[in-house]
Design a protein around this nucleic acid. Sequence first.
DNA 1: ATAGTTATTCTCATAATGAGAATGTTGTGG
DNA 2: CCACAACATTCTCATTATGAGAATAACTAT
Lengths: 244, 244
Amino acid sequence: MDDSEFLAGYDPRAFPAVAVTVDVVALTIREGALHVLLVERGEQPHAGRWALPGGFIRPDEDLPEAAARELAEETGLAPRVHIEQLASYGAPGRDPRMRIVSVSYLAFAPRLPDPRAGSDAADAAWRRIDRLPELAFDHDRILGEGLERARAKLEYTPLATTFVDETFTITELRGVYETVWGVPLHAGNFHRKVLSVPGFVEGTGQTTEGGGTRGGPRARLYRAGDARLLHPALLRPAREEAAG
Amino acid sequence: MDDSEFLAGYDPRAFPAVAVTVDVVALTIREGALHVLLVERGEQPHAGRWALPGGFIRPDEDLPEAAARELAEETGLAPRVHIEQLASYGAPGRDPRMRIVSVSYLAFAPRLPDPRAGSDAADAAWRRIDRLPELAFDHDRILGEGLERARAKLEYTPLATTFVDETFTITELRGVYETVWGVPLHAGNFHRKVLSVPGFVEGTGQTTEGGGTRGGPRARLYRAGDARLLHPALLRPAREEAAG
DNA sequence: ATAGTTATTCTCATAATGAGAATGTTGTGG
DNA sequence: CCACAACATTCTCATTATGAGAATAACTAT
């Protein structure tokens, strides 16, 4: 196999230009619904279509920095934002301009302010996950994988706490699970579970000022605990699905 | 913030060259120990050091194809190899030659043949995970993340079956878990668990030719079932660890 | 006050796990 | 050929985790 061995030694500088971008799937909860940050493209290709915020990495910038910058450009970097790498995409034709490899990031954040459009975007907005237009490039796929990652991460990490305020009630936390997973959870069992997992939440000794708008007792306030992983995990209710 | 908005619109073609490589963390089990495929670098930088197999992507090639090609160049592409994307790394100084963004892949395979060195490698070999030299570039970190991913994936997917032959005994499967996790498992409980998870394995109706070399009954043979996920998962024994 | 809401705690049945042991088969060494 | 050790497989029993429903009590609005 001289041929393949020769090609393996190919000179990298002889390659056509490859550009690397980061794209961010930023999720937050607003008005009880899961939202993703989108920008309306102002330039070709796909001008006028909505897309994930993102852009080219800079020469002196590491990947996570680039992701944080892109997010900050639209939202003003909020405190307590969790960012993690999602996946990379590099199919030859995914961007018509040139060969682009995109590294995607997933961000969870508590109620963020309304975004403002960056320079290359016509508009930027938080959009409900369940009412989305078709996105530019392969961003539908990236968003889909980000959502699945987010849903899975709620199971075995305490990241749900990054969607709520510094202190929160068990019911608010349950609301995060319910809106991200899209299923109702048993209030009593959820309560028992959250309090039984070591390091998930810790009590503050305080309660809400008053009951809910429609009544009910004051709820105790908690803050995030120091666990990085939930043991045992808080699993999604089993879907019926057959094998496959 | 005109400044940041201006920079966000930066022309990508004005960027210094970025090269994209794929690196593969290929794992297999040989003689009861977990091994990773490494190549000894024949060229600068890091000539003489061991590294993960990898190389530059080609212009017409998608990322997963590039990973499969790199793996095949060293091992001759074996059947039943599972490959999945791991993560990407792009810190500005990680390769002294130029800005390189590396997309890493994780591969699981049953007993693969001895590798042969590719054109740019002085040597290639399966090396025991527990007796490794310090690797070139940031490959120690990539390998570490690959190992953790592999250990986690055994918990909730049937991927352990990709480390064994087409048909296998429950004890062989248990051996995979024990060597990847590095802990002994209770034979009886493991047996019960594997057979109780729907779609994990299916019986072939056959047994091994004879008992083990030191005695014991013939073991039943199984093949991988059609489940993609294990429900409920087969969790690692809880480590004692305090919170954190 | 009264009814409707909701946080929190309980109870009870069932599922899943960890540990240890029993049962029966098979290879090895007398 | 026989006793024994090794090992696959099955069981038992205690403990833990989960799902469902209900009880208790603290609040708001009427």
